[in-house]
Design a protein around this nucleic acid. Structure first.
Lengths: 166, 166
DNA sequence: TATTGTTATACTCTATAACTATA
DNA sequence: TATAGTTATAGAGTATAACAATA
């Protein structure tokens, strides 16, 4: 329990690392934030057996019945080939259906199956808990500020993606 | 030039995608933010020939002369094996030196060579421009708010990493 | 016995391009 | 000719564990 911090001659750095110019750099901050998020997400959603991005896909399909794979790709900044394989897996697991559209037979109108809706509900609760844990150090006001600022930034950079960030 | 947006019967979604519960989810927002950041970073720093993370390493070594590889791993949320290969490449390119420490011969005290300092200066300017571009839609106050909130969040989750986020 | 760093290996995620089928 | 989606392939990034050298 007591770790005797007295006169540590260890190599293991008694000093605190300075960030220098990286302190205000959004590229750096974003990458570390992403690493923190990804590592902690393992504890929250790994047992659900979804690959990275699949939970987001379930959520986007739930909120936008009949969405196309191309729209998903645009909204998630993924390549369509990546969307294909992730959706394919969701279809094989019986969570997503590719319904044919009346007009244009080129694209798939994606919908959740009943099991898919169940899976989304479960996953939604988990990622909500995860988000709360991540934001734990911030006050309610600060949480709202942070997410609002990120949405504003994303809206400016994803104008072509046609996402409603408001 | 004129794209005749009138009566588009295209499949290509005239609608805007709703986010639903993802709107406030930090995991989702972080992943998209990371994708935006990474894709735009290509235009800013790709020609410098550094692998992902190497610019951050140059910056951390510049701000913390004699830092160990383990400290870098902790500060960047990387495995030590990953640090080994990235540092190895930087050494081969003559940008980083592994100096022996007086006391403990197990660890490498990392420093920048003169060419390494030059490379860091160049890279620092570029990532600064990149960060400015990313934050372009935000006011000066909002920029400061955003980075400060991210730092506060990271400081709470990276207590063991011994980084000075203040 | 614990720690720093190396090496080897496999797995996930991402990028590119050629292909089909529809329009 | 252009678009939605598929397939195949390669590359980057990350995770794991066994190992050597030093403490």
């Amino acid at each position: 329990m007591k770790k005797t911090p007295v006169s540590r001659t260890t190599a293991a750095a008694p000093r605190r690392l300075k960030l220098g110019p990286l302190r205000d750099n959004l590229g750096y901050l974003t990458r570390v934030l992403r690493n923190v998020t990804q590592q902690s997400s393992a504890r929250h959603v790994d047992d659900l057996g979804h690959a990275t991005g699949q939970i987001t896909m379930l959520g986007l399909i739930a909120a936008n019945e009949g969405v196309s794979q191309n729209e998903l790709a645009g909204a998630m900044l993924m390549r369509k080939s990546q969307v294909t394989s992730l959706i394919q897996d969701l279809v094989e697991r019986g969570l997503v259906q590719r319904a044919e559209q009346g007009g244009d037979r080129r694209y798939n109108a994606l919908t959740l199956t009943p099991p898919g809706q169940q899976a989304w509900k479960r996953a939604r609760d988990r990622i909500h808990q995860h988000s709360d844990e991540l934001l734990g150090a911030l006050s309610p006001d600060e949480r709202e500020q942070l997410t609002a600022l990120v949405r504003k930034l994303l809206a400016a950079h994803l104008q072509d993606a046609e996402i409603d960030f408001d």
